[in-house]
């Protein structure tokens, strides 16, 4: 444990240490008391009955509810991750372009899709695709989820690409120019590769957002994990089903965040850019 945790506090002396110890014990009691209160309330309502929880340990529930739900969540998230990275690279480079028209169009697209709620886009594309009948009617929720997630997260990734390139030391581009590269060549061959390495941790943090937002698909009847659990729980164990779904999401996202942090330390020495995961502002910092 480091001696100094925060800018706010000095290293505690004996008296302060005693006070901290007493508050600590008090804190433990308060939190345990609060947890006991909630559990008691749930117990009185019969929510802790073992027969409500045990189904989630059986192979049947995993085989027919949880795993198919998880598969669909991963399917939508994986498709959205691939397409939004492509979208982000395309429009991120567009925003870095010195061609006024390309720059302008990319900026408008990126700023627009970052300002519109994902759920609005999901509902719109789901109903639009259903109306245009260009995909199987059963697949419209899937495409709705993927398109909406791509437009929003792709725009955020475009912003990450831009800030990643801007975060590089100026000397990198100047060196490219000095050996006779054009701006585009130096962007593609020198700046982008380093920026991509630098933005990898932030990119993975964005994947967490994609995975979380894929749960919005349940609203447009995409049978991902949340919806599968909701349907299963509607017969009775709804609290239990939703809790299991939440725990699964937490485990997956926590692992991804951990990977992002680990990568940021690992990659720190391999690029001239900053690797600390940052989240791009969700909307226009400067238009």
């Amino acid at each position: 444990m480091t001696t100094r945790q925060s800018v706010l506090f000095d290293a505690p002396g004996p008296k302060a240490q005693r006070r901290i110890l007493i508050t600590n014990i008090l804190g433990v009691l308060i939190f345990l008391g609060a947890a006991a209160f909630v559990l008691k309330g749930l117990y009185d309502q019969g929510q802790l009955a073992p027969e409500l929880w045990s189904p989630f340990l059986t192979a049947d529930v995993w085989q027919f509810t949880i795993l198919p739900g998880l598969m669909n969540t991963f399917k939508a998230a994986a498709a959205a991750i691939v397409t939004s990275v492509v979208f982000g690279l395309l429009f991120g480079m567009g925003r870095l372009s010195h061609n006024k028209a390309i720059n302008w169009i990319s900026s408008i697209i990126v700023e627009f899709f970052r300002a519109v709620p994902v759920l609005l886009m999901m509902i719109f594309f789901w109903l639009l695709l259903g109306r245009m009948q260009i995909v199987e009617p059963a697949d419209t929720p899937f495409y709705g989820v993927v398109i909406a997630l791509t437009l929003y997260n792709g725009s955020v990734i475009a912003e990450l690409v831009r800030s990643g390139v801007h975060g590089l030391p100026k000397g990198q581009r100047e060196a490219g120019m000095a050996i006779g590269m054009t701006r585009g060549q130096s962007l593609r061959n020198i700046e982008l590769p380093q920026a991509l390495v630098a933005m990898l941790p932030s990119l993975i943090s964005q994947f967490v957002v994609i995975l979380k937002d894929s749960a919005l698909g349940s609203i447009i009847s995409y049978s991902e994990l949340l919806r599968a659990m909701q349907i299963y729980g509607s017969a009775g164990p709804i609290l239990q089903a939703l809790t299991v779904a939440a725990v699964l999401f937490i485990i997956i996202n926590f692992t991804l965040s951990w990977v992002a942090n680990w990568l940021s330390r690992f990659l720190g020495s391999r690029t001239a850019g900053k690797t600390k995961p940052i989240s791009a502002p969700p909307v226009a910092a400067k238009v």
Binding site: S218, L226, L242
Partner: peptide
């Protein structure tokens, strides 16, 4: 816990549970 849980689950939890 709450940063890694989808908001949709929290909202559904509030209503259904």
């Amino acid at each position: 816990i709450f940063r890694n849980t989808p908001l949709t689950i929290i909202m559904v939890f509030c209503i259904l549970v």
